[in-house]
Design a protein around this nucleic acid. Structure first.
Lengths: 341, 341
DNA sequence: AGCTTCTGATAAAACGATTTAGCACTACGT
DNA sequence: ACGTAGTGCTAAATCGTTTTATCAGAAGCT
């Protein structure tokens, strides 16, 4: 790490450091092409790259973005969000400084302060699951919210369009011919807002098909395979005429539980029961037997979107209601026509 | 972000900026306690915190660590590693700058250069799976390797002790009384070195129990549930006297496939077949039915270890052979005594 | 008194860049 | 010959710190 400074380039090219800076930053100062060539050659030969710390001090911007997340480790989705952010950053010569607060408020305050002292140009405030958050006091006004939205609705934010996703999932089942479709709801602490949105989408789709949602077909499950198993058993303990021919699950984990309970009861999938999940969770959705049709959460796209807002490389989204990102349907093999149609 | 500078504190306390700096950095210069108090009070009142960019320029260290990873998004394990790194960083007032190279060499070169230009104090080179890597040309000599080791064996590195993990898993099955234990090997591109190490551990344990490993009980599987299903079927198409009573799987994903095939064949778990996995993969190991006994990968601990080396807050590990991190057994319910003991 | 030592503080240099203002020289028109 | 315009380049200020060297005054000693 014996670093070469602008001074070294200047000496090598036999000009002043001013000239070197002007040339390397493509200023339109009056420097003839010949001199420019000489400077560029010297810089190239020495392998010069400007010290970003010095440059940051002078320019008052560091080409650095702070990424604050509440729980990096507890979700497998974090990666794709960070990757989206990171890809856009790289494409524009920015670096990201990452801090995980573990959801602790005190840590969060310190993290925000650290990033401010490090003079990051802007910050992204990310949640690992879709939620409404209280805007942290110290967070700069121009922070972008990723996968969450501030309670005060002031700020640029992006969240998945869970309602449209719920509609899409249900429509898929309706098109396959199903009429009795259950919704496996999520209970957990804190209550995920996504489950209500997905349920609304489910209702939208049913009503549009002329079906009134039936309360008994909405059953609550712990967010886990076990929750899915239990809910499924409750569902199939109904009189057989009332049993659903398809279920839409809050997420792939509970869908996995549905598979388990269905297998145990000797139901064939998708012959006796069609299933649609949500999340397109890596290593679980695709690896069910049969592979699970599900709705994908657009984590990568949301990450990109947030960073594009931060860098101002996309049309600016107004502060206010969050941008809703589409959740695409991932077709696999867990949906078929209902058994006795 | 109207920032308060050291100048402002100096004015408020009616001293020079030198004095402020001296006091705030607890220098042992001759400043009487009374003046110190005054300065501290002024700093506190104004909410002063030093500009880390300016400080970094002057001190030639930024309290910033570069974290280079090959594939952040494709593995659910990344999170725990990053979290370990990040926690130690925070405890010592450091920040981490994260770049994902996507495994691309050109991107990697640029990333290393960016971090160097940003004057990170040191770098961590992380792999999302256990592998041997070629030391990137531009990587500083003092970089620490996380979950991988440089081919040249020069450098501080930490990897999971997969051999001991394989031994531990097998011993668990031996203690339960099993004698015919299969190993479900992984085939994938590139060939994961972990699978050979785990197999060696498996052999170690068997031999120590006086059992010679049987080649037919080592069967290859694609790293996926489907691979696990196929391998299981091959295993149980053997003459029944030769069928294993337990399997040790390369990882939890293939173990999930074993569950599927076993259920399909009507085998009871763990009555007819005991299973041990590897990875303790979130949302898959614990959610099998019955929950899967497995070996955990110590990602968090490795992350911490790497950062502690970087910051020099733990006894220095010599450059050379990698530090082997223990993989603990996670007891759940997929192991029982063999059926006809 | 005259010298040294101690005390309390600060001026100024340095870190490595960017940028503003301006200098020295040539060319040109009259 | 002289003012003006244009060309090629650079000195110096600046960003916000840390740190070294030094200064003024008080105190102590002979």
């Amino acid at each position: 790490m014996a670093r070469v400074r602008i001074r070294d380039v200047a000496d090598a090219a036999d000009v002043s450091i001013t000239t070197v800076s002007l040339v390397l930053n493509n200023s339109d100062a009056r420097i003839p092409e010949k001199t420019r060539e000489r400077v560029r050659a010297a810089a190239e030969a020495l392998g010069y790259a400007p010290n970003q710390v010095a440059r940051g001090l002078r320019e008052k911007r560091t080409r650095t973005i702070g990424f604050i997340s509440n729980q990096i480790a507890t979700t497998p989705f974090a990666g794709r969000m960070i990757l989206g952010v990171q890809d856009v950053a790289r494409e524009h010569g920015y670096l990201i400084i990452l801090v995980d607060t573990g959801g602790d408020e005190e840590t969060e305050r310190e993290a925000i302060a650290s990033l401010a002292n490090q003079r990051v140009d802007r910050m992204i405030y990310a949640s690992m699951w879709h939620q409404v958050v209280d805007r942290p006091k110290a967070l700069p006004q121009d922070a972008v919210f990723l996968n969450c939205r501030p309670a005060d609705e002031k700020g640029v934010a992006v969240v998945p369009d869970d309602r449209a996703g719920g509609r899409l999932a249900t429509e898929r089942l309706l098109t396959a011919g199903h009429r009795r479709i259950a919704y496996l709801d999520a209970v957990s602490e804190p209550h995920p807002i996504a489950t209500d949105l997905r349920y609304e989408g489910y209702c939208d789709a049913l009503r549009q098909a002329g079906i009134e949602p039936e309360p008994r077909l909405r059953v609550s499950a712990e967010v886990s395979a076990q929750g899915g198993r239990e809910a499924t058993n409750r569902l199939f303990d109904l009189p057989s005429a009332e049993c659903p021919t398809a279920v839409f699950c809050f997420n792939d984990r509970v869908a996995a539980g549905v598979y388990q309970a269905a297998h145990r009861r000797g139901l064939l999938l998708p012959g006796d029961l069609s299933i649609v999940g949500y999340d397109d969770q890596q290593y679980v959705a695709a690896e069910q037997e049969p592979p699970l049709t599900t709705i994908a959460l657009p984590h990568y796209a949301m990450g990109r979107w947030a960073m594009e807002q931060v860098l101002g490389v996309a049309p600016a989204w107004p502060a206010g209601p969050a941008h809703l990102m589409e959740c695409p349907l991932v077709e696999r093999e867990s949906v078929g026509p209902p058994s006795e149609a």
